[in-house]
C-alpha cells in the first residue's frame, strides 16, 4: 500500500494543483485493477514497473513541454542570438575603450591604462554576453509556454509560416561581395586603436630606449597641443568610421552607395592626415634633430613626411578601388 501511495504522490506532485485529485483517484483504481485479489509487495512492484517512471507519466499528463525551447522557436532563437551577441559585445567593448580614452587624466602610465582596458574589456564582453544570452533565452522560454498554438511548424524570423515569397526578402550575397563580421570588427578595432594613439601621442609615439627595465620612453615625436587643435575633425572622423561599420553590419554586402561613402571617407581621412602631418609645428624640434643625427641626413623629417603621405595615399586608393570592385560583383 505504501509503495502505491508514494508512486501516486511522485506523479501528482509534478502536476498542476487542479488536476491532482482526479488523476490520483484514477491512478489508484487502475493500479488496483491491475493487481490480483491477494497481492504481495512483489506484485505491487511489478505493476508499478509497467506504469514506469513517475516523471515520464506526469509529463504525459502535462501540456507543458519538457524542453526549454522547442523546434518551433529554436531557429528564430539561434538566429537572434547570433545577430545580437556580436553587436552587444562590440558596443560594450567600444564603450569601455572610449570611457578609458576620454576619461584619461594623464597621470597614469599608458601601459597600465592599456592593461586596464584589456581586462575591463574582456570582463564587459563576457558580462554583456551572459546578459544577452540569459534575457533572450528567458524571453523564448516564456513565449514557448505562453503560446497555445499547437502548430508544430517552425517559425522563421518573419514570425510566420514559411512561404517561397520570403526568399524575395533575403538578398543573395555572393562570397566576394559579402562583408564578414571579422572585417567589421577589425574596422572598429582599428578606429579604437588610432583614436587611442591620437589622444596619447605624446606618451606613445616617439623614441624609446632599451634599458634594463624594458623599453623606456625618452622623447615624444609629436606636439600633443598641435595634434589636439584638430580635435573636432578627428571626432567627426571617428563618428563616420563607427557609422560606416554599423552600415556594413546592416547591409552585410558591398553596394555602390557604400563604395561611394567609403571613397568619401578615405578622401576626408587622407586630406586631414596630410593637413596634420604637413603642419610645421607638429613635430617636436628635439625629435627632428635626434632623427637627423641618427640617420646622418639633413631634412630627415621632410623625407619621413613625404613617405608617410605616399603610403597613406596608396593604401587609401587601394581601399577605395577594392570597395568599388566588390560592389560591382554580380555573381
Amino acid at each position: 500500500m505504501m509503495l502505491i501511495d508514494i508512486y501516486i504522490q511522485e506523479v501528482t506532485r509534478r502536476l498542476p494543483e487542479k488536476m491532482r485529485s482526479d488523476i490520483a483517484l484514477e491512478l489508484r483504481s487502475t493500479i488496483e485493477d491491475m493487481l490480483p485479489g491477494e497481492y504481495s509487495e512483489e506484485d505491487v512492484k511489478e505493476v508499478l514497473n509497467t506504469l514506469g517512471n513517475p516523471a515520464v507519466l506526469a509529463s504525459g499528463y502535462k501540456d507543458q513541454p519538457m524542453h526549454l525551447i522547442g523546434p518551433r522557436y529554436f531557429d528564430v532563437y539561434v538566429s537572434l542570438l547570433k545577430m545580437i551577441l556580436p553587436i552587444a559585445a562590440v558596443i560594450s567593448l567600444i564603450t569601455v575603450i572610449s570611457q578609458n580614452v576620454f576619461g584619461y587624466s594623464g597621470d597614469e602610465a599608458i601601459l597600465s591604462i592599456v592593461l586596464h582596458i584589456i581586462g575591463e574589456g574582456i570582463w564587459a564582453t563576457i558580462d554583456v554576453g551572459i546578459q544577452v544570452f540569459f534575457w533572450l533565452t528567458l524571453t523564448f522560454v516564456i513565449i514557448e509556454r505562453v503560446d497555445k498554438n499547437k502548430d508544430e511548424q517552425p517559425i522563421t524570423l518573419n514570425t510566420g509560416k514559411w512561404t517561397a515569397d520570403e526568399l524575395k526578402n533575403i538578398p543573395y550575397i555572393p562570397k566576394k561581395k559579402a562583408i564578414s563580421k571579422f572585417e567589421i570588427f577589425g574596422g572598429l578595432m582599428w578606429t579604437a586603436i588610432w583614436a587611442t594613439v591620437y589622444f596619447n601621442a605624446n606618451q606613445l609615439v616617439g623614441v624609446y630606449h632599451g634599458t634594463e627595465n624594458g623599453l623606456k620612453f625618452v622623447m615624444p615625436a609629436l606636439n600633443q597641443e598641435v595634434l589636439l587643435q584638430y580635435l573636432p575633425i578627428i571626432v567627426i572622423i571617428i563618428g563616420i568610421e563607427i557609422a560606416m561599420s554599423l552600415y556594413k553590419l546592416l547591409k552585410a554586402q558591398w553596394t555602390k552607395r557604400m563604395a561611394i561613402f567609403n571613397a568619401i571617407h578615405e578622401l576626408i581621412v587622407t586630406v586631414v592626415f596630410i593637413m596634420i602631418i604637413t603642419n610645421s609645428k607638429l613635430m617636436n624640434q628635439q625629435f627632428i634633430s635626434y632623427m637627423s643625427d641618427l640617420f646622418s641626413k639633413e631634412n630627415f623629417n621632410n623625407w619621413l613626411i613625404v613617405s608617410a603621405i605616399c603610403i597613406f595615399i596608396i593604401s587609401a586608393a587601394i581601399n577605395v578601388y577594392d570597395g568599388f570592385k566588390r560592389a560591382r560583383v554580380h555573381k
Binding site: I23, E26, L27, T30, T50, L51, G52, N53, V56, L57, G60, Y61
Partner: peptide, 11 residues
C-alpha cells in the same frame, strides 16, 4: 500499449 502513454492519451 505502454500504460504510461495510454492514461495521458485518454486525458
Amino acid at each position: 500499449i505502454d500504460q504510461s502513454t495510454l492514461y495521458p492519451l485518454l486525458r
